[in-house]
Design a protein around this nucleic acid. Sequence first.
DNA 1: ACAAAAGTGTTAAACTTACACCCATGC
DNA 2: GCATGGGTGTAAGTTTAACACTTTTGT
Lengths: 301, 301
Amino acid sequence: MNKEEQEYLANYDIAKYDRPSIAVDMAIFTISDSHLDNADYRKLPDKRLKLLMIKRGQPPYKDMWALPGGFCKKGETVYEAALRELKEETATDKAYLEMCNVFSESGRDPRGWIISQAFMALINSKTVNVKAGGDAWEARWFDVELKRISKEQYVIDQSGNNTIESDSVFELKMYHNDIIIGAKIKEKRLYRDYHESVEYDVVESDGIGFDHGKIIIYILNKLRNKVETDGKIVFDLMPEYFTLTDLQKAFEIILDRKLLTANFRRKISEYVTETDRIITGGGHRPAKMFIRNIDAFYKND
Amino acid sequence: MNKEEQEYLANYDIAKYDRPSIAVDMAIFTISDSHLDNADYRKLPDKRLKLLMIKRGQPPYKDMWALPGGFCKKGETVYEAALRELKEETATDKAYLEMCNVFSESGRDPRGWIISQAFMALINSKTVNVKAGGDAWEARWFDVELKRISKEQYVIDQSGNNTIESDSVFELKMYHNDIIIGAKIKEKRLYRDYHESVEYDVVESDGIGFDHGKIIIYILNKLRNKVETDGKIVFDLMPEYFTLTDLQKAFEIILDRKLLTANFRRKISEYVTETDRIITGGGHRPAKMFIRNIDAFYKND
DNA sequence: ACAAAAGTGTTAAACTTACACCCATGC
DNA sequence: GCATGGGTGTAAGTTTAACACTTTTGT
């Protein structure tokens, strides 16, 4: 560094400018058994997509539920902050972790200018520590359900500038035992000048703090799209040993549709290796357990 | 909002905490003719992938080239800041714009704690204003070339914890007339606990300021992956009227491989509509011009 | 005439989709 | 026996990949 650069930096006062706080918000998903008891001895337990939420112990949004998260500290990267939060909440760092989007609308946090980096994390329920279920933190896994409840589509033709607008309203519902929280979120999808843009707006929020309804729906859609185009991340929701039926159910839960077993198995066959473990005692034919075939995952470029 | 919340907020002083500045860095791509003159009257001009770079007029990294960008201001979203920067540099807002990643390593900017949101923007060269080529700003379009120059792969087996590590070195070279800048970047790809992680590190930087070599390579790879799995964004690099050969070349430039014409045309046929415009005068059969078939783009869910 | 690019047709191989069928278990 | 899940085979339809071939132009 030369003298001019050094002088410039000596006179540069970063504190002169308005600066935001940076937060990380974590959408931590897992798949686990439904808490509902099983009547039929033959039936497998119902699996559900779960999202970890935290009950806020202090303002703002005290007593409401929000995504786990916290502020990014000086000296750590945003990714490290996300990993730190993940560990604090779940006691594991064996997770698929991806930065999904920034949420920075002014007014999104009453404390001031706070920009949030939203992360998606996928963990398998077997590695989750009870911490998340303990009482100190008031963290709970919620069953997640997302339904589109309306859709309108129209063409706006203003002097040759062809715009297609499609408005949907989604209903997000989340359950933990008798706790039910949710939100209605409007999705506005614009196609103008050959460019698509999507915007979400919280229309109604019931028990969910901040703009987290919006973040949840955004990440949930991202998760579905990712699984639709490349299913490999679904394995991050599985324990080391799993049956092919469990794997298929994980796909079905995220994609929200049934798959044909024979076809599914052919498709994923290269990613799994049979072991000699079997599960018996289910009132039906025992299932072989499989592990990931790591070579298949790694053979990219 | 109740009294407790109001009191809490009245006593909350955001300035007590260390806060970073938020910058947006823009990787603005377009495709345009190579500046090299064409000898053969029959040959079409060579197309290249171009990236807009700015010569820094003041420290830090004075006289080096960097991605266009700037600080996010209070009251605007990160996305709005990106759009503002895009307009400032290119005088257009008709672009594909996507937030790609956060770069937040401490020490990445000598002025202090500065976190950068990296955006990818795709514009078509016909809408670009001369501003970018003017002298005031010292902004220039650089031809981009990225080559992997080495690759090593090994398995680390530490007490059953199977880790595969794959290290590559990429050479990034960028040209504008007689200006040549570039960087060597090491890619470390880890596959551990069934989770893949990728890390980039600038090994050597020649004329490129900050950690922008890293950002460029990251976004370039993202662009390629996106085009490989869903080619629709390539249309954002095309003007309103285009020939199928131009479109095919855009794909080939980004994917860095040749495609078979007959197959390519079948694949993209639903996305284009023939017009009665033709291009003549090329010393070969005239080409029909096409426009986007907007309905095909929009028929998702 | 001929080189360059524009544009189409044909075929084999690969993959997807749908459905039918058999197997093994616990009560 | 029978409901439930575990597991496989086959055939039709669709998509991809490779290649061969024809057309049209400016010099």
